[in-house]
Design a protein around this nucleic acid. Structure first.
Length: 556
RNA sequence: GCGCUCGUAGCUCAAUGGAUAGAGCAACAGCCUUCUAAGCUGUGGGCUGCAGGUUCAAGUCCUGCCGGGCGCGCCA
């Protein structure tokens, strides 16, 4: 829709520019085309005249008029052009244009909106929760976001990898092993206090119980340190298995599970230190190794190796990002909880120090989820070890509802997630409203099958030009902007744009359904055209839902 | 204190710098002998926190206040 018009306006402008001898350094392409928010302003509007008028000594409206005259009448795809407001040019497309648009959409089928022009390789890293306990709702939001984003990026032409970074090294892991050991000793009847900084959730006890029978007789003879090492490994294994199952039930996929420990085992951390040192980005002070992140805009330098010889989390994170780039990715997307925002400058600094541009790393911060039930807050507390797990939420409301609702809001605003609303089957629940489009179209098609068609009429080619009602043009127009929505969602890393789009398409369709009788035996030619439109709506809805990882039911 | 971020209808939120700021919920009034009422139609509701600035044009960009959230460790 926009391409046609852009080239038309562009050539008109260059013609005028030559005639009026405008300065050659003028940017004639610096105008935008946009959909006006009011139907009386036509289908598409441009601000071209307003952008240029002052620079070339015109009144905006006069320039707009000149552009219209230069384009001239007689384009079969354009019905009308007019100057409006402060100098907008409003375009109205012809019936023929909309017919062609709809034909193109239908012809593309489930590939409609797909962009095959190759773009860069992207690695999306998401969830990456420490393997110290089950996933909770907050992780679910990150999971839904990362997974949908990956699907969208792939659909618009990127080569996408999905990765989970497993923090299986460091202090947290030792605490995990120790926490299990304490429970194990309790199981044997020993009176042991659980230290306050240990993990206290019930699942630790379950892990201890699960492991106890398989540890063997020799276990008792091992040193405490050896016991903790074994238990740590085993516990990580059990917890990761649980995490993988929760994600798989949530239909969230990762191609690779990258172990932090492997960075140390393969000496990648030292190698990244060497790289930084060689380029003069590190120094020693107070017995510690520092990264000069202030040289890249961070507000203080950061420690890589503590004076006690232990590595910081940041140290392995630098190695990890270097490793990801070394694997050949052009763009890294990290999805983090919003409480990590203070961490961004130092990682961006590291990316710069590694010789990349800061925008080769895109960080998406996901805000909190407030879990509600009938409008009342559900108590979530990690301290007591009692929190609402992703598994509980998914088994209660289903993966479809959970995924869709997680993606209804911009990731940068906190989300209220009402369990009862997510289960409700009504207009209030956006998932059902959108899914219902698919079911409703199917039922229309079934209805049309039953209806007795005039055999002569059924043989004739379908005449889409009968779709001339405002509601019908509005729907085709919305369908035609699908790929723009996807491009924006991919570029801005905001899958919720797609969710919003699907909701508004659903609204248009349900309104259309209410306003017209779509299957009408007395007007069969019109019915056939309308069913094509309905099919196109369903088709786009199916594609969109799939990109969000939500199923499109045939029947509801 | 410093930094990041958000502030839009009673509530939850939309709005690539564009024209009269939009939806849903809640409230009120309607629509089922006819395609799924899991739906549709209509009515009310706003100094977009405040004040400046940039721009032909600001909810959007810049500056300063006010208010909420978060972060400021040789933690992860």
């Amino acid at each position: 829709m926009k391409d046609t018009l852009r080239s038309l306006i562009g050539s008109a402008l260059s013609k005028i520019s030559t005639e009026k001898a405008w300065p050659t350094d003028l940017d004639l392409g610096a105008f935008v085309l946009e959909e006006p928010n009011k139907p009386q302003f036509g289908h598409l509007a441009t601000n071209a005249a307003m952008v240029l008028a002052k620079k070339v000594g015109f009144k905006p409206r006069d320039l707009a008029e000149l552009i219209i005259q230069t384009i001239g009448p007689g384009h079969e795809l354009i019905e009308s052009m007019e100057v409006a407001g402060p100098g907008f040019i409003n375009f109205r497309f012809s019936n023929k244009f909309w017919v062609k648009t709809l034909e193109k959409i239908l012809k593309s089928g489930l590939d409609y909106g797909r962009d095959l022009t190759p773009k860069g390789r992207v690695l999306v890293e998401y969830v990456s929760a420490n393997p110290t306990g089950p996933l909770h709702v907050g992780h679910g939001r990150g999971a839904a976001l990362g997974d949908a984003l990956a699907r969208i990026l792939s659909f618009v032409g990127h080569e996408v990898g999905c990765e989970y970074y497993v923090n299986d090294a460091g202090r947290q892991m030792r605490i995990l092993g120790n926490s299990v050991l304490v429970r194990l000793n309790q199981l044997k009847g020993q009176e042991v206090e659980i230290p306050t900084d240990f993990y206290r959730g019930d699942y630790i006890g379950h892990i201890a119980g699960e492991l106890a029978p398989s540890l063997g007789d020799d276990f008792e003879n091992l040193s405490n340190k050896e016991k903790v090492e074994i238990l740590t490994d085993r516990a990580i294994g059990i917890i990761l298995t649980g995490i993988k199952k929760d994600l798989s039930d949530f239909r969230v996929r990762h191609d690779t599970w990258f172990s932090e420990k492997s960075l140390y085992e393969n000496h990648l951390v030292e190698k990244s230190f060497d790289f930084l040192e060689k380029h003069g980005h590190t120094y020693h002070k107070d017995g510690a190794l520092w990264f000069k992140s202030t040289a890249f805009g961070d507000d203080k330098d950061r420690v890589l190796v503590k004076s006690d010889g232990e590595m910081t989390y940041f140290a392995s994170d630098i190695a990890y990002h270097k490793e990801k780039f070394d694997r050949g990715y052009d763009l890294l997307i990290d999805i983090w909880g919003a409480d990590h925002h203070g961490y961004i400058p130092r990682v961006k600094a590291a990316v710069s120090a590694l010789g990349r541009k800061p925008d080769h790393l895109g960080v998406v911060l996901v805000q909190m989820v407030n879990l509600l039930r009938d409008g009342q807050a559900v108590n979530m507390s990690t301290r007591s070890g009692q929190f609402v797990t992703l598994e509980e939420v998914v088994s209660e409301v289903g993966a479809d509802a959970a995924r869709f609702i997680f993606l209804t809001r911009s990731h940068e605003s906190t989300l209220d997630f009402d369990l009862e609303l997510a289960k409700s089957q009504s207009r209030d629940n956006p998932v059902f409203y959108v899914q219902y489009v698919c079911a409703r179209v199917n039922s229309l098609l079934a209805k049309a099958q039953e209806a007795k068609a005039d055999p002569e009429a059924a043989k004739a080619p379908i005449d889409l030009s009968l779709l001339a009602a405002n509601e019908e043009v509005e729907i085709i127009k919305t369908l035609s902007t699908f790929s723009e929505t996807l491009t924006a969602a991919a570029k801005r890393l905001e899958p919720h744009l797609l969710t919003v789009y699907l909701s508004s398409l659903a609204k248009l369709f349900h309104q259309y359904y209410g306003a017209f009788r779509l299957v009408d035996e007395d007007h069969w030619a019109l019915t056939r055209a309308r069913l094509e439109l309905a099919k196109a709506v369903k088709q786009v809805t199916v594609i969109g839902l799939d990109l969000l990882g939500v199923t499109a039911p045939e029947k509801m």
